[in-house]
Simulated assay, not measured.
Amino acid sequence: MTFLNGFVLIDAPASALNNARDAMDAQYDNEVGVKMIQVSRTERYPYVSAQAFRYWLRDTLAQNPEWLAHTAPVFREAKVAYTDANPMQYWDDDLFGYMRAEGKKTSAAEGRKGDASREGATDIKQSVTRTSPFRVGTLVSLAPVNIVKDFGTMSRSGPNMQDGDPVPHSHQFYRAVFKGQLSLDLGRAGLFTYTSKAGNQNLDEVRRRLAEDGGLEHLPAQKAYRLPRAERAERVAALVAGLAELRGGAKQALHYTDVSPAAVLLVVTKGGNNPLQYVVGSDDRGQLRVNVEALKETVRAWKDQFCSPLYVGWTAGFHDAERARLRAALEELRADGMDFVLDHPRTVLRRLADDLRGDAGAAWLD
């Protein structure tokens, strides 16, 4: 089984991409804070939760008409929500996972019967769950930063405005470069198991029958059904291409931030470990730094596990000196037999999507 592993960098020059419920060191009752990790009294690392990042990607993918046509409906039941949980039909159920456990009470069953939004929903005989083949890490600032507070007021003028003091408010923001790890289990994309282990009971009796009727390949030894390779490739390629278009984030009206990757490093490996995580960090001044020695040592140590070239996307204008150092190190590694692709992140991710659909992807997905 193979995995697509690596990380993305997102440049946030003056941003508040993921807000906290309670603001640290708040000076006002209505102050909006940012999510951060406090390591010491003075060191604070802003972060974007993995849930927020996954939401950005889901929302971005929904702009793709083909992906949208294969997006699962969501059903609500009191304080519980779940998708249709049909990974054969819905791409997001396949790649992002699901848990569908309907309420057992009579009132819940009656409510489902009267819910018009469930028309056409897949029946269910028992609870089904699927762990996500696509995994992400929390996006964390490469270095500790100063959290800035911006003071503002609601003080518009107009005939309906009453006399009196303006209404003050405050919010926090920062300047940071975020790094987040990514991993996509290529072998599990389009592969649906029916074992009783938690997270692996992807299919119940109803869904197994749908798999049989749909002509999916049955793998009795694995207790699984698998989609044809071309269908699996199209799904993972659409997800990878979606990363290139990534959009989202809080406070965009005040701190518009392009959250599409400023840089991305990815490689297909034989296992789920992420050998590239130490290639980019920060120096003593908190500035982004490419650790070329870590890159060389990593490639030499893990080269026997690599199944693809290194896919390196790095936007021109984003820490150009580090991009040049990275290119020089990659050229040295090429002389040792390690190939790479270096270009704009959007170009590289789309190239990777094409490779997943092509002959190379055929080997990675088997």
Rank of each mutant, 00 (worst) to 15 (best):
A109L: 12
H70C: 10
A262V: 09
A224K: 06
L95M: 15
R285L: 13
S141C: 12
R346E: 15
N64G: 03
V8C: 07
L57F: 03
E234S: 14
T106S: 10
G199L: 00
L349V: 12
H169S: 09
R188C: 04
D29T: 04
Q63W: 00
A316I: 04
L182I: 15
A72C: 08
H218Q: 11
T347E: 14
G180D: 11
V48R: 05
T131P: 00
K270I: 00
S196L: 09
V290E: 06
G358M: 09
R135N: 05
G120A: 06
L184K: 03
P220V: 12
A211S: 13
G152Y: 04
L330S: 03
V128C: 13
A62P: 00
A230W: 02
L186M: 11
Q172K: 05
S183A: 14
M1N: 07
L57Q: 03
E217M: 05
E102A: 03
E102P: 01
G249P: 04
G187T: 03
G33V: 09
A324R: 12
G190S: 01
L186Y: 06
E332G: 04
Y45K: 05
G271L: 02
T153N: 14
R76G: 01
A321M: 07
A16G: 13
D92P: 03
P65M: 13
W364T: 08
D284A: 14
G33M: 06
P159H: 10
T131H: 00
Q172L: 02
G190F: 00
L4Y: 09
A20P: 07
A362G: 15
Y98M: 02
V240W: 09
N291I: 03
P144F: 12
E110A: 08
W56H: 04
R112V: 01
A26W: 05
L9A: 07
A321V: 13
A121H: 10
A253V: 12
S15I: 12
Q27S: 13
V136A: 04
R300V: 09
L182H: 03
T315M: 07
G281S: 13
K270C: 01
V267R: 07
G317W: 02
E212C: 04
Q252L: 02
F178N: 11
A12R: 10
T106N: 06
K105A: 15
R188H: 10
R112M: 06
W364G: 11
G337V: 09
A20D: 12
E234W: 02
D283R: 11
Q63I: 00
A16H: 08
R207I: 08
K179Q: 15
H255N: 15
Y98N: 01
V177K: 01
V240I: 15
F7H: 14
D11F: 10
T71E: 11
R188E: 13
C307F: 01
S170N: 13
D22H: 14
Q181S: 12
N64D: 15
P261C: 08
V280I: 15
Q287V: 08
A237C: 13
D163S: 07
F134L: 15
L203W: 12
T269P: 00
A78W: 11
R323C: 09
A244C: 07
Y225R: 05
L227G: 04
K179N: 10
N160P: 00
V148R: 12
R350S: 04
A328Y: 02
S117F: 10
N86G: 08
Y256W: 06
Y174K: 04
S282M: 00
A85G: 09
V236P: 07
L365R: 06
Y45L: 15
D284V: 10
Y98K: 01
F75D: 01
